[in-house]
Each structure stands twice: as C-alpha cells, then as structure tokens.
Amino acid sequence: MAEKFEAGDVVLLKSGGPKMTVDSYDQDDEKYRCEWFVDGKVQHQLFRGSSLEKYVSVGW
C-alpha cells in the first residue's frame, strides 16, 4: 500500500475528533501512528489510512 500521508502531516478522523499529527507509518500493519494532546498529555494510536483525511486550515 502506498503511503497517503507523511510524518508531520496534520490529519483528522473522517468520523471527527481532534487534529492529530502523523508520527510514522507502520509498513507491517499498514497503519499510521498519530499523536494528539488531551489535557496537556500526549496520546497516540494507530489508524488505517482509509479512516483519516488531511487537515486543511482555512486561513484569512
């Protein structure tokens, strides 16, 4: 599977949730390791690329 995201990309779950930063891609599991903060504490989890979308900031 080709990687859709790169380390440092900001992504969202398609179902909603906080902005997350892609940390790495696990070739064996074909999942992205993403990190985000909750109450100042770092959280992380593996997600399939099909459940993520790139965050696009709407700037002025």
Score class of each variant (00 low, 15 high):
D28P: 03
V58T: 13
S51A: 12
G49P: 03
G17L: 01
E3L: 05
Y55W: 14
D28L: 09
K41P: 01
P18K: 03
K41R: 11
R48P: 13
V22L: 05
P18E: 01
V42R: 15
K41M: 11
F5M: 02
Q45D: 13
D23R: 02
W60K: 13
F5C: 03
R33H: 07
C34T: 10
E53M: 10
V10M: 05
V42L: 14
Q45W: 14
D29F: 09
F5D: 03
D28T: 12
E53A: 07
W60A: 14
K4L: 14
K14F: 09
E30K: 06
D26C: 10
K19H: 12
H44Y: 11
A2R: 11
G49W: 01
W60S: 14
V42P: 14
S50P: 03
K31P: 01
C34F: 03
A7R: 00
G16H: 00
K31I: 00
Y32Q: 01
K19V: 09
K54C: 06
V38P: 03
K54M: 10
H44R: 12
S57V: 08
T21G: 04
V42N: 15
E6I: 03
L52A: 05
D23N: 04
F47K: 01
K14G: 08
M20I: 09
D23Y: 04
V58I: 12
E3S: 11
R33W: 01
Y32H: 01
Q45F: 10
G8M: 03
M1H: 07
G49V: 00
V56G: 05
K19W: 02
K4P: 04
D23Q: 07
H44M: 11
Q27T: 12
F47S: 00
Y55T: 08
P18V: 00
F47T: 00
K31C: 06
K41C: 10
D9L: 05
G16E: 05
Y25F: 13
L13P: 07
Q27K: 11
K41W: 09
C34H: 08
S15L: 08
D9Y: 02
V11N: 08
Y32T: 00
H44G: 13
L12C: 11
K41L: 10
V22Q: 05
D39V: 05
G40W: 02
G40T: 03
L13S: 12
R48E: 15
S51R: 12
F37V: 11
V22C: 04
S50G: 06
S51H: 12
G8H: 05
F37P: 04
K41D: 12
Q43L: 12
D28V: 14
V22E: 07
D9W: 04
Q45N: 13
V42Q: 15
L46A: 03
K4T: 08
D9A: 02
V42H: 14
K31V: 00
S57E: 15
F37M: 12
A7D: 06
V56E: 10
R48Y: 15
D23E: 08
V42T: 15
Q27W: 09
V10E: 04
D29A: 13
S24F: 00
M1N: 06
G49R: 02
L46Y: 11
